[in-house]
Design a protein around this nucleic acid. Structure first.
Length: 587
RNA sequence: GCGCCGGUAGCUCAGUUGGAUAGAGUACUUGACUACGAAUCAAGGGGUCGGGGGUUCGAAUCCUCCCCGGCGCACCA
């Protein structure tokens, strides 16, 4: 596989450099990491290319010519090197023999479904938090980009050997919940005839989804619920409403193939006194103080009330201003409980954390990272993945969503219209820090313009070959058992070699995706791999010798089926990570 | 005003972490189905990588200053 090839040739190169160092040709303080082999963009530049000459020639005390002769002749002597060329401003390009790609494919097939997934996590615990939408209503389309990005990142971490927990933080303690509860109490009053006026101007949540919840409460507690103590019935209605809405949310998430391992309650942090402990901890570190925040300049803040609050010194951690941990009414801020929440994760053994947020929370990043840094003495690492907003279109025209008029499109509706596969793929087919245009008409289109279809079609096409084999009564199946004696050296068409090279990139793509938390890389890679496959297929249309099934030549057929098996495996591995089905037939 | 994110072909976007002549799709033009799925493929034109300056063998990528667009900016979440 390619990482092996890189490793092998980098080692050879570094050994040559060490030789030069020992002979005092170059200085011994040269950083060898900077001298490496890369895959050239342009196929004409060979299979591997090194910058060694560019980096080192100036540093050496021999001539450029002597230097290049030394490197080239040594590389030429390396096994499986076809030719070595000095090119461009000083690159050394390596052209490898096909045999290296044959053994590469064999190695891929030996690894079977494990190919690409190196165990780099070594069972380290990782906490991945995503969605975490307020439990005040069904999830809408705006939530689903972060949901899908988070879920894909979590799937990948798992496959790379980490001990992953998928987590959802439930904000069940704030002011939004008080408003939500008021809204349900209002409906309850209407239902039980306690009020006849339909004056709902003070009611913040007006969605119809609250009606079945209210009816459910009415059914369970009858019309006399409000005879109880106000605190008591409020608490009953609140808890009932939250758990009902969480059920809806879980159902919505399941529809897009997401299941969290833990729904963590903000309220529990307060009840268990973890929040106070946490703030004490920061006070002891001298990171909380009482002070007054200035009114922000140049923007209009209504009801600004200058007062003293308890503040966290987030400016110590790169933030613009210090941030409040207490509100006007003396209760804690959302930020305060968020500190406690992250500290709780840390105490559960998750020193490595990933959060997925919408870009509208970007301003919140520094204070949370700072607070976590403070409270764990820098022992936790928190990666925050920000994703930009989604703009909806239908037939090229923007679809407006407004919270006020209650016109938001739920995840439920979108999935029913376009399907989970298309939704998940589209949400990943863009860099997460670029805004995403989501056009309903485009994601259901069956064309090259729609990547999910294009990739799934490639996968199904491969299995059509399997069906054809049966039809022709050829005794070869898509199974490693049948292919153990494959002669890989029969694969010599330029497009076949190109496909093997592409497959060989897969492990590197996965590592880059993990390292940067950029799942779109997988979606793009699968698209390119599919494209290379479709090309080979059509070459077979033009040239019978290149068809996968060759009735007169069973060995050749076997070698090609082995290639198909490897492609289908990588496609499936990739699609599994991004949570999209791999159908063996299209319908 | 401050902060974060964008600006790459007519349009929608990638760009191997600093590499060579910057790539796909789409649109437009033209060609390939007596077929292992044409729902696909092949070929062609199309660019001051927002602009200036800097760093070096080498910049779309790093630094700096501007321009344009999006989001955020006591307390809410």
């Amino acid at each position: 596989m390619s990482t092996d090839i890189f490793y092998k040739f980098d080692n050879i190169l570094h050994d040559l450099c060490k030789k030069l160092i020992n002979n005092n040709v170059i200085r011994d303080d040269i950083k060898l990491q900077n001298i490496k082999f890369e895959i050239p963009k342009d196929e004409n530049h060979g299979d591997l290319s090194t910058n060694a000459l560019l980096v080192l020639a100036k540093e050496s005390n021999i001539t450029f010519k002597e230097f290049s002769d030394f490197l080239i002749s040594n590389l030429m002597d390396t096994e499986e090197v076809e030719k070595v060329v000095l090119a461009g401003p000083g690159f050394i390009n390596l052209y490898l023999k096909n045999s290296i790609w044959h053994s590469c494919l064999e190695s891929i097939n030996n690894q079977k479904k494990d190919f690409g997934f190196e165990n780099i996590g070594n069972n380290q615990k990782v906490n991945i938090e995503y969605v975490s939408a307020n439990p005040t209503g069904p999830l809408h389309i705006g939530h689903c980009r972060g949901a899908i990005i988070g879920d894909t990142i979590a799937n990948l971490y798992k496959k790379m050997g980490f001990d992953v927990i998928k987590e959802y933080y439930v904000n069940d303690a704030g002011g939004q919940i008080i408003e939500l509860t008021k809204s349900v109490i209002y409906r309850y009053k209407l239902l039980s005839g306690l009020t006849e006026t339909s004056n709902d101007e003070d009611i913040e949540y007006k969605g119809e989804y609250l009606q079945p919840i209210t009816e459910n409460i009415y059914k369970q507690y009858g019309p006399e619920l409000l005879d109880m103590d106000s605190d008591k019935y409020t608490s009953i209605i609140r808890d009932h409403t939250i758990s009902f809405i969480l059920k809806i949310i879980k159902k919505d998430l399941k529809k897009i193939n997401i299941q969290h391992d833990l729904f963590f309650s903000e309220m529990s942090l307060i009840r268990n006194n973890e929040l106070n402990t946490c703030l004490d901890n920061l006070r002891n570190k001298n990171l909380l103080y009482h002070g007054v925040l200035q009114k922000p300049k140049k923007i209009i803040v209504e009801d600004y009330d200058e007062r003293e609050q308890e503040l966290f010194k987030s400016t110590n951690y790169g933030d613009d201003i210090d941030r409040a941990v207490t509100k006007n009414d003396g209760s804690h801020t959302y930020f305060a409980s968020d500190i406690a929440y992250h500290y709780n994760k840390f105490n559960r053994g998750y020193s490595r954390m990933v959060n997925v947020w919408g870009a509208d929370h970007a301003g919140y990043l520094k204070r949370v990272k700072g607070a976590l840094d403070a409270i764990t003495d820098g022992e936790a690492s928190l990666n925050i993945v920000l994703c930009q907003l989604v703009k909806l279109f239908r037939e090229g025209k923007p679809v407006t969503m407004s919270k006020r008029s209650n016109q938001f499109i739920t995840i439920n509706e979108v999935v029913d219209e376009v399907g989970c596969d298309a939704l998940r793929y589209m949400m990943l087919f863009r860099k997460n820090d670029a805004p995403l245009d989501f056009d309903f008409s485009k994601v259901t289109e069956k064309s090259r313009d729609n990547p999910v279809f294009y990739v799934q079609y490639a996968y199904a096409r491969i299995f059509s070959v399997s069906r054809k084999l049966q039809e022709l009564n050829i005794n070869i199946s898509f199974d490693y058992k049948d292919l153990s004696d494959t002669d890989y050296t029969l694969l010599n068409d330029i497009q076949e070699i190109k496909l093997i090279k592409k497959l060989a990139h897969f492990p590197k793509i996965l590592q880059q995706t993990l390292q940067n938390h950029e799942p779109h890389r997988i979606a793009y890679y699968l698209y390119e791999l599919s494209s290379d496959f479709h090309t080979l297929w059509n070459k077979g249309n033009d040239n019978e010798n290149l068809r996968f099934i060759n009735i007169d030549n069973k060995d050749l057929t076997k070698s090609r089926i082995s290639l198909l098996l490897a492609i289908s495996n990588v496609l499936k591995s990739g699609l599994d990570i991004i949570g999209v089905n791999s159908p063996q037939e299209m319908n």
